[in-house]
Amino acid sequence: MGNTPSAEAKAGWTLVSPPAIYVLLMLAAPLLLVFGLSFAGLEGGAKVSLPLQEGQDLHFTLSNYAKLFCWSASDTCSSTDVRMAQATATAMGRSLLVAALVTLTTVLLAYPVAYYVSFHVHPSKKSLWLFLITIPFWTSYVIRVALWRTILGYDGAVDAALGAVGIIDQPLNLLQYGTLAIVITLSHAYAPFAVLPIFVSLEKVDRSLLEAGQDLGESRWTTFLRVTLPLSMAGVVAAVLIVFIPTVGDYVTPELIGSGKVPMIANFIETQMWKLRNQAMGSTLAVSSMLIVAVVATLFVLANRRFLGGRK
């Protein structure tokens, strides 16, 4: 159209600048501030509570991070700090365990569904199936999570169903097993997240490769294991990340399902930032937990890198 590359770049930048500036101000700036605050301290070790009072000066310190490693009482670690460090480590460990179990459950259960829609549903019906799978995800998260309280709880749907077929004679009340109830609830809430990326990668699998495999004497099952599954691993990896990262940071489910008795790391971040108004310590927890998640996610991607990078 006669547009020189620089004129085109200018037009593109002009258009994108409002959303780009919005993200800079509302996402990049806050995240940088949190990163900075995680290294901030006040004279005499007072808690950093924003907005700062007159005469308060922040200085650089590693003491917030040091507090996370207070395993035993010492000159720098009070007994409160030790309890706090232990509780935080427990919550972080629980978050990772819950997220890992939820990811495993959702991805394993979702794969056959994605496979069915991609390989056995007529192309004209595919978007209808996907729509049906995604609808529950678009309805209120709080309501869906809260409903699991009534389903898993004493005399809830699970107890009623199992009792009716005679498997149990006493109500199970699965809700009393906090972590298990949290895993069940989150697996349900994130199910569609796992189906979609796997479906997208299965759609890209060249169907003629499957025919070739079978022509060369592979069975249906070995064709799946040696052709389809490796080719769809990019989708599986995406599904794992897209389920794992938000579930590590889930806040609503431990509150509603665990009644706050089995807190995860997001509940700790909220306690520091909001209830205790200790924004430096809250920031330290936020940065540390994101760092741990980033390390876990990177290791996972590296472990699967032979499946990624696309076909040559």
């Binding site: 995240l31 501030l33 990262i245 940071g249 806040y251």
Partner: peptide, 9 residues
């Protein structure tokens, strides 16, 4: 990003 991180930041 976990929503709690976005909200707290």
């Amino acid at each position: 990003l976990p929503e709690m991180i976005v909200a707290m930041a």
